[in-house]
Design a protein around this nucleic acid. Structure first.
Length: 242
DNA sequence: GCAGGATAGCGTCGGGCATG
DNA sequence: CATGCCCGACGCTATCCTGC
């Protein structure tokens, strides 16, 4: 997927709130940029780190720039910080039928309500695919940016909502329909993905339980450049406690 | 008084709904 | 039918509140 924006490098200063960062661009001016990834990002947004911003001037907008990437300090490797990108990448891959587990559809629909379970409020799945045989597959796409020792970790911060999604997918799988999670790691340097047992044990347990219930767990890493993002290869999801 | 839990607000986007 | 407004989603953090 080619990006429709261009970026300029900047030096990360601070993050006054989860949506906003301050960074110094080359002219020496400090600018406010919207942070499109509400995760914690503690390991990535370190003062002094090189980030890449696109200019987004628009009337009524409170920031002049959008945070797009952060560089890994030692290597300069680019990491995308846009939590909307994984969804777009997944959709593009659906259209091009490049992901083996998700290539056999006759129609799909984004943002669909999950079947109501127990009369509770229904949450939404990212995609609903219809197969050749008419069978339905519910897919939840998740964005991961944190990698340590070539292992991606999800979530970055405790996610009540993410856990609930997994439980709902597990219920779907038990009812005989298909359900899947697709983690998109927005960087190339991960060979596997694990849940964060210490930061969010409830999510990790729900992921294990979802797998037992028959939910398909998939993950892909991505090549990120200043001009495009490409899903690179499928990596294993390891649910067990390390 | 203190610790821990609950909650609001932060910026943007897009879906849904109301209005013309 | 087209346009535009409003509100929900997203997670971190500061602040407020509750209960001991």
């Amino acid at each position: 997927m080619r990006f429709t924006f261009t970026t300029e490098p900047a030096r990360f200063i601070e993050r006054p709130n989860r949506y906003v960062i301050l960074a110094e661009i080359r002219s020496g001016v400090t600018v406010r940029a919207h942070c499109p990834d509400p995760g914690r990002l503690r390991e990535l947004l370190i003062p002094g780190a090189t980030v890449h911003l696109s200019s987004t001037p628009r009337e009524g907008r409170r920031t002049t720039h959008e945070l797009r990437f952060v560089e890994r300090p030692e290597t300069g490797l680019l990491i995308s910080l846009d939590s909307r990108l994984p969804n777009a990448l997944f959709r593009e891959a659906l259209d091009e039928r490049t992901l083996e587990p998700f290539s056999d559809w006759t129609a799909y629909e984004p943002e669909v309500f999950l079947p109501a379970s127990g009369g509770r409020i229904r949450s939404r799945a990212d995609f609903l695919l219809r197969g050749q045989d008419g069978a339905r597959t519910w897919v939840e796409v998740k964005s991961a940016t944190l990698v340590e020792d070539r292992c991606a970790y999800f979530p970055d911060a405790v996610t009540e909502r993410g856990r609930r999604h997994l439980e709902e997918l597990a219920a779907i799988a038990r009812s005989g329909e298909r359900a899947a999670v697709c983690f998109i790691v927005q960087r190339p340097d991960a060979d596997m993905l694990r849940p964060q047992w210490d930061r969010d044990p409830a999510f990790a347990e729900a992921l294990e339980e979802a797998e037992r219930a028959g939910v398909l767990l998939t993950a892909y890493n991505a090549d990120i450049t200043l001009s495009e993002a490409t899903l690179r290869r499928r990596i294993p999801v390891l649910t067990g406690r390390p």
